[in-house]
């Protein structure tokens, strides 16, 4: 039998106090788009649901001195419709627009998306590529965790039972891009996703790069080998070929109901190439190789 309690947290302070009190029993619910599915399936039970949907302080997109801060309770819709993000973090903007469907985006939050830690979480690769930090609070303290340290495995993160994600923060980078391969154009859990962000010097040499992939490992991953293949270089056919070759070392995909590991291995390098070229302002042929 399903067995739950529900308490609504009016503000962050109350939420942290409840987390502190309930510890193992606590289960935070914001947009509830994942929570309801897990509750129905019996994956979650015997918990106190802490409602945080109404905490205004957790929501909003701020830009200040080159830094973008997005409250954990910000809906994917707000991100998908943000003119600021379209300009300053196109990777995340694009991921939000490819996320589920417009109706689900009205509820789903960015904090919930990363806290759920699905290997296919659409916002994870862009946040990894933008080298975001996760701002986490618990009663009496706060900490910052780099995105690349945040995920531990399938549905596992560094979050402690009494912790709450307040926000994600990253430096704006217009030279970033995202690409999703799904089995449908809407409401599709990704088969493979990739995101990249770059900085170049005047000669076009890549001085800083981050590449990340989703659905190719137990958790969203940075593609360090791929990054190494392009760092300090100008993009040309040879560098792109090296980049694509390197991707294989960064991923460990599996067969599932959506695609085979082989397909993921085939497609990951292609979309890494595309997001990198797009980040560099080169028009990678999105349609293929003519």
């Amino acid at each position: 039998m399903k067995n739950f309690e529900f308490i609504k947290a009016p503000d962050v302070k109350a939420a942290l106090a409840l987390l502190d009190k309930e510890k193992d029993h606590a289960y935070l619910v914001a947009g509830s788009t994942n929570a309801m599915v897990d509750i129905r399936a019996g994956k979650v039970n015997d918990r106190t649901l802490i409602g945080i949907r109404d905490i205004d302080a957790l929501s909003g997109i701020k830009f200040s001195r080159g830094k973008i801060t997005i409250g954990a309770g910000t809906t994917i819709s707000e991100i998908a419709n943000s003119a600021l993000l379209a300009k300053k973090a196109p990777a995340l903007f694009q991921a939000a627009n490819d996320f589920a469907d417009p109706t689900t985006r009205n509820s789903a939050t960015i904090g919930g998306n990363i806290a759920n830690a699905s290997p296919a979480a659409d916002t994870a690769p862009p946040l990894l590529a933008l080298k975001a930090e996760v701002i986490i609070a618990k009663k009496g303290s706060k900490r910052r965790v780099p995105m690349e340290d945040f995920f531990l495995g399938v549905n596992k993160t560094v979050l402690e039972k009494d912790e709450l994600i307040l926000a994600v923060e990253f430096s704006a980078n217009p030279h970033s891009a995202f690409y999703k391969v799904g089995l449908r154009n809407a409401m599709a859990i990704s088969v493979v996703t990739a995101a990249a962000s770059v900085r170049k010097d005047r000669d076009g040499k890549i001085t800083d790069v981050a590449i990340a992939l989703g659905s190719v490992a137990p958790k969203p991953v940075r593609a360090y080998n791929a990054e190494k293949a392009v760092l300090g270089k100008k993009l040309d056919d040879k560098v792109i070929a090296d980049l694509m070759k390197a991707v294989a070392k960064d991923i460990s995909p599996i067969d599932d109901v959506r695609a085979s590991a082989e397909y993921r291995k085939d497609v990951a390098p292609v979309i890494v190439k595309r997001v990198l070229c797009k980040s560099c302002g080169i028009c990678a042929n999105e349609g293929g190789t003519k």
Binding site: D101, L183, R184, N185, A186, M187, A188, I189, V257, R258
Partner: peptide, 16 residues
Amino acid sequence: TKANNFSTYLIPTAVD
């Protein structure tokens, strides 16, 4: 039947 729900059995949406 492994694809036994609408997140695995994918019928066309309006954008497909």
